[in-house]
Design a protein around this nucleic acid. Structure first.
Lengths: 126, 126
DNA sequence: ATAAACCATAGAGTAAACTCCAAGTCAAGA
DNA sequence: TCTTGACTTGGAGTTTACTCTATGGTTTAT
């Protein structure tokens, strides 16, 4: 699969794919005699994982750590599990924060619909 | 309330509070003869709102827009409600993305607990 | 055979949101 | 009185994650 196809499939730019590879999150992807990338099924699965985690805001540095552990082999399983558990907890916290903000927004929108909101600068409810 | 007290109350840095003020999200906060800030109750409510929205990832530019509309008075109510509705939808989408990533993490952790994960580089399941 | 349309690399540039620094003012305690 | 510590400002610096640019090679259609 060419870089353009992968980029389209995952709705990211080709630059981003090359950037992830340079950072060691993906690949190294196989290249033909002219240096053109040809993504394998395994590459695609890795990319899917990375993009999913990135879309949730998990930093590249953490994903890089995980990938590095993975490439060190079975000895690091425990460490990898721990890392995933930490990130799961971070995500849970973030989701709860966003839910709070969401609820506040919904409440505020209701106030607007009921025309119950202050109109003036410095009012209690912005 | 002094800047230090506010910073402690909301677990942000004093620099961040001054930065928000410079960007026009908050205040202008009242200053005494020596230029020292004294935050009012209204300032605190505004700060609570801003920090809640920021913690959910809503950009400063969008919050600035909202604040600006607010300060233009009652004529902008409709526009403000629309803006909030848009941000509510953006948040909903983000929460769903993060939930997906969370579920994937939980599943992966289960695999680790059951020792069902590939150990080798390039394996299907990273 | 030449231009269009891909691909490549290295490295510079960008945007967002802080975060830090230098230089200075003021108030209180030893 | 002098030092310590909290505050001020303007502006520079940092981090993260891309994104773009310049330059150049390869295939394909006219």
């Amino acid at each position: 699969m060419t870089i353009q196809e992968v980029a389209t499939k995952f709705s990211v730019s080709k630059d981003t794919l090359r950037y992830y590879e340079k950072e060691g999150l993906v690949g190294p992807v196989f290249k033909n005699d002219y240096g053109i990338r040809n993504y394998s099924e395994d590459d695609l699965q890795r990319i899917a994982f990375i993009i999913c985690m990135r879309s949730a805001g998990i930093p590249i540095s953490v994903l890089k750590q995980y990938v590095d552990l993975y490439e060190q082999g079975a000895d690091t399983k425990e460490e990898r599990r721990l890392l995933l558990e930490q990130q799961r907890d971070v995500l849970a916290e973030k989701i709860s924060q966003m839910q709070k903000a969401y609820d506040k927004l919904v409440y505020k929108i209701e106030l607007y619909q009921d025309d119950k909101l202050d109109d003036y600068i410095g009012g209690k409810e912005i």
